[in-house]
Simulated assay, not measured.
Amino acid sequence: MRCDNGPELISAALGEWCEVQVIVLHWIQLGKPTQNAYVERFNGSFRRKVLNAYLFATLRQVRHLLTE
């Protein structure tokens, strides 16, 4: 799994889970988002089109919107 060094992806829990699932984490270099360009583009588009456009009260609402 390739991921950035953001705070949501540096937890010990993620590392332990990946180890149990036999998933190897590959970190992109700091300041090099082009090494993960597809995900960076998706995250930006998703943020603009969904997360910034709606106010969600529950995770269930998010899942419902995404499966429509």
Rank of each mutant, 00 (worst) to 15 (best):
T34H: 15
K32T: 10
V22A: 12
E8Y: 13
Y38Q: 11
I23V: 14
L9C: 13
N43H: 15
I28F: 14
W17N: 03
D4F: 08
C3P: 00
R2N: 10
V20L: 14
I28P: 00
I23H: 13
Q21N: 13
H64D: 11
G15W: 06
L25Q: 08
Q21D: 03
M1G: 10
N36I: 08
H64R: 09
V62F: 02
E19V: 02
N43C: 13
K49P: 00
Y54E: 09
D4I: 05
C3E: 06
I28G: 01
A37T: 10
F42W: 12
D4R: 01
T58Y: 04
V39C: 10
E8H: 11
L65T: 01
T58N: 05
A12K: 15
T67Y: 12
Y54R: 05
Q35T: 02
A12L: 08
R47Y: 02
S45V: 10
W27F: 15
G31H: 11
Y38W: 15
R63H: 06
L66W: 06
I28V: 12
G15A: 08
R2W: 15
G6V: 04
Q61P: 01
L51K: 00
N5R: 14
F56I: 00
R47S: 13
F56G: 01
S11A: 11
N52L: 07
G15E: 11
I10M: 13
S45K: 07
E19K: 15
F42E: 07
R48M: 04
V24M: 11
L25K: 04
Q29N: 10
L14Q: 05
L14E: 00
R60A: 12
W27Y: 15
Q21E: 07
L66Q: 06
W27H: 11
C3K: 09
P33R: 02
G31V: 03
V24S: 09
